[in-house]
Design a protein around this nucleic acid. Sequence first.
DNA 1: TTGAAAGCGCTAACAG
DNA 2: CTGTTAGCGCTTTCAA
Lengths: 336, 336
Amino acid sequence: MAVTIKDVAKLAGVSISTVSRVINDSKPVSSEMKAKVLEAIEQLGYKPNEIARSLVTKKSNLIGIVVTDIGNSYIAEMVRGIEEIGRMYGYDIVLSSSYGDSNTEKKFAEILRSKQVEGIILISETVNKDVIDYIQDFKIPFIYLNKYYIDSKFPSVSIDDYEASFRMTNYLLELGHRNVLYLTVNGEVETSLEKYKINGYKKAIDRLEEGREWIFSAKGFSIEDGYNIGDRIVKFIKEDNITAVFCCQDELAIGLINYCYDNNIKVPEDISICGYGDIKIASIYRPRLTTIKEPYYDIGAVAIRKIIKELDGEKIEDKNTYLPIQIMKRESCKKI
Amino acid sequence: MAVTIKDVAKLAGVSISTVSRVINDSKPVSSEMKAKVLEAIEQLGYKPNEIARSLVTKKSNLIGIVVTDIGNSYIAEMVRGIEEIGRMYGYDIVLSSSYGDSNTEKKFAEILRSKQVEGIILISETVNKDVIDYIQDFKIPFIYLNKYYIDSKFPSVSIDDYEASFRMTNYLLELGHRNVLYLTVNGEVETSLEKYKINGYKKAIDRLEEGREWIFSAKGFSIEDGYNIGDRIVKFIKEDNITAVFCCQDELAIGLINYCYDNNIKVPEDISICGYGDIKIASIYRPRLTTIKEPYYDIGAVAIRKIIKELDGEKIEDKNTYLPIQIMKRESCKKI
DNA sequence: TTGAAAGCGCTAACAG
DNA sequence: CTGTTAGCGCTTTCAA
């Protein structure tokens, strides 16, 4: 059996309240008693039982997070931010992976609540108003992070996608490209952030004299989806003299570049390709991927900071938080 | 205030013990009472407070894990395995990142213990007997995972590095390579797994008539280290007609291939390069990296399985667990 | 089969 | 400044 506060009290010859006071520094204790207690604690190697403590204080110092898949590098990065900042404020992280199933998301959120987590961060890749409502009903601080979709009624933290997309398109234009294709993804148009990104792209193109929009859709957001659409894109490139492809996600861009590699099309010599996200591989891959940096670490950090603020009683504004945009100019896009 | 067992009892018109019995199904309860209780639970949306439960049962159903950095893809993969299997047995994961500092590892392990985790998994990248001893003193199930170093006295789960390295070298030989360079890393020779891997390489080379060993050291295990050693390797390649480089880690291999890319050396046309680990990027990168698969997910899965077994009172053998080896034959190495 | 009561390890009034 | 005591929400004897 582990050593408890009683053992310490007994050894130090004081009451348990005194021990409690010294470990929490909650009320003045005479220095001699304090010394005795500290001595006993040291001797016994006593560590307070946080579970017992939580039960009475109603503070578990736990933040629950349910992610789609910690194996995704951008999610791991968000979790890093959450964990590191959480720790600074004394919170530990309880992690669970839903693998994209929204019932699982619910179930895990439920379990987390049972474990008395003080707040929940959900990192999702699908839209599910249902799940959001469900978790909000817990009445504990809750942040919803989704790189692909938005729930307009629910604040989150992200970059301004419209602006980012606009800036990236402009960068391509500055590089001299005139026929820029935007590669988006089929799907829920209503809630997809693609709506904003496409508008950003359009705005930039529209400012061109005779600017023409080329929008194309992949089946999904994955590397494989990018690869699979390669042949159709390449056909387009040739027919319409496209010189740059702006992919709505880094994964698609990587997949597309892989397709090019496998088919002897040189990037950026034959075609410039850029992505969106700046996932880890983007700067490792050759050619290094030109992309928009979504600051995943910071997104996680800000998310948990919000939760902690709310826990501390600060009123958090009910607005989306936008983080700075950065265009990572690398070698996958060249001047024309 | 959340709804408690008392509320349920009151509403159902029974004692709290009865409620407890139905939620735990621990003792027979008449079906009518049961019905009333279930009804009340439903109506109130009652969920047992796991913290309170833990306090009395002394089972937190929490496994603590301290990792070097969840941003590392192989670590994320191990965590996936841990989490997924843990969940199957009703355990939740509390995650913390040490960023490589062994005092932090200690400190976090300590915090986890306070949180009453039932077992600890430490994923480390350095050697520190100290930390291991410290955590073992907690007297709770503990698994130590380290991709780079070994503590011979402490069982872990991994592949047989000697055998893996032997097989990979043989594969290179089968491909027709005769001058194969092994790229290792400077450092703690005593505890490094490189010892075994180098021996595996040597054994394969030695079976060759006139086989010659070429062993070279990078400064560290990172992509950057691989890149930085590029010029020296290339010099060697030319002088000594090396046709294949066997890198002791995928990261080094990727770094080296990047160096080649940037310096117009074609892989695998000019030089074959293989890695060790099969990290996520290995199969995405072009050329796809030939490498040895270390089954990270499975390593995590087996690790937590061991912990759970121990928690269930099964005696676990005090031996290292070896997982199957697989050579991923891809395009970065070609026939000669 | 049920309920009363003790107690898990700790904090926080409340007295003194 | 210190100790006594009453819980926190739950499980688990022990009687009934």
